[in-house]
Design a protein around this nucleic acid. Sequence first.
DNA 1: CGCGGTATTGATAGGTTTCAACGGTGGTGG
DNA 2: CCACCACCGTTGAAACCTATCAATACCGCG
Lengths: 246, 246
Amino acid sequence: MDPSIFRVLQTSSGTVERTWHDLGEIQLLAGLTREELQRVDRCLVAERRKVPQAGVLFRTGDRFDSVYEVRTGFFKTVVNSSRGAEQVTGFQMAGELLGLEAVGTRRHALDAIALEDSLVWALRYDDLAAASREIPALQEQFHCRMSAGIASAHATMLQLGSMCAEERLASFLLDLMHRLGVRGFSPTSAQLRMSRAEIGSLLGLKPETVSRTLSKLQNAGLLQVQQRTITVTDSPGLRRILRGMA
Amino acid sequence: MDPSIFRVLQTSSGTVERTWHDLGEIQLLAGLTREELQRVDRCLVAERRKVPQAGVLFRTGDRFDSVYEVRTGFFKTVVNSSRGAEQVTGFQMAGELLGLEAVGTRRHALDAIALEDSLVWALRYDDLAAASREIPALQEQFHCRMSAGIASAHATMLQLGSMCAEERLASFLLDLMHRLGVRGFSPTSAQLRMSRAEIGSLLGLKPETVSRTLSKLQNAGLLQVQQRTITVTDSPGLRRILRGMA
DNA sequence: CGCGGTATTGATAGGTTTCAACGGTGGTGG
DNA sequence: CCACCACCGTTGAAACCTATCAATACCGCG
């Protein structure tokens, strides 16, 4: 291996040595060949960053220069209304990107806050854009991610606009469990990282309603709730709620 | 001018002659130099398409191959829930893009329906991707549009999740009037292309509630309603509602 | 001119929020 | 190590906003 492709990086927590090999960890670069990864490494500044629980990755109005891929941990994104109100617009876990909403304006349009101690990759957008001009597979990946961000936002709109509390919770839990399952965690049982208030905010409900609705679903035998531990015991039943066949 | 760059195109309504000059009409190509436009014309299939009122541009599940830029007219996008319910997720007018939600999956995830006789540019995605690898300005434009799509979806979530009916209408009208104003139409008076039901669907309200709320805003002296003609008479007043200082 | 879809308005019902009290949990400091 | 405190979650009762149901009015169109 050519030693010239080793890099010493200045990060917020000191200097780290890195090679193109490490970039293979980045989901956004999945599908790239070894050669492409090496090429990317030459032009893309990808910095590891640590965000403690309740820490801010970026805040509304911050200058945008990087997109972030979650390595480990859990984030929420929050939009702030002109009055004080906050609205959670999503939860992000390993492999998911943060900051895509800001590419157009070069200013972040929401807050990204860690719900547990987390690690992210910070990828300089300008480098990313340049690299994706060179490497079609990267361009495709990047476009897919933005596209997926749009599609999932529209799905959330559907939740918010035309579902009752029970349906919103069912749909939220199915989505969450699915995403956990894909990442190798149990698709039926999870330790929630967010409060009832945060779930409620995403779903357009008050914390009390979330609590009540979870109790109702529990009494219906669809899941078990113990504080922040949720176990889905009848996911077909949850799906049935979504199809209106409760 | 080099005559070789003239093109004869097969469109749904016959053959049309087109030159790189026509491409200058496309907002997505704004900011490109003459030379870049000529280059784009050589590799990008951009087809004009007509969509009559109530016509379908694409439907959920359709194969994705092009993104569409509205030339004239007015569209709505609709997501369908697993039960029959429909949710309008946005209205699109001249210069805005449709189909971006499908880049990732190559399948459309929503319906795009014309609310009046409309014209669109159909831009082959593969060509667009190739061209944006060649032309950084195009890449930037395209990324901006996707990014804006994400940001605006999050803004709609805020409406749906944490605003009352009056605030949702105020915010909707301000946004609509602003977008019309940018396009050279009156920013205070508009002929709505969509029904109360469609507005309601976007805002998570029933048509009756939309109607009632419009009447309330009218009685408050903020606007005037005559069927689908709406005139905003006090837009600071509307803004005040958004800031909770009604 | 009359029809059909759309908009308005009223009365009532229903789901969610609000207000409030209580219980549980985790963290901190004595 | 335990006690205390603050925060989060649960549950209840009443209020509120929006949905629903229904009747009427309005416009566009054939």
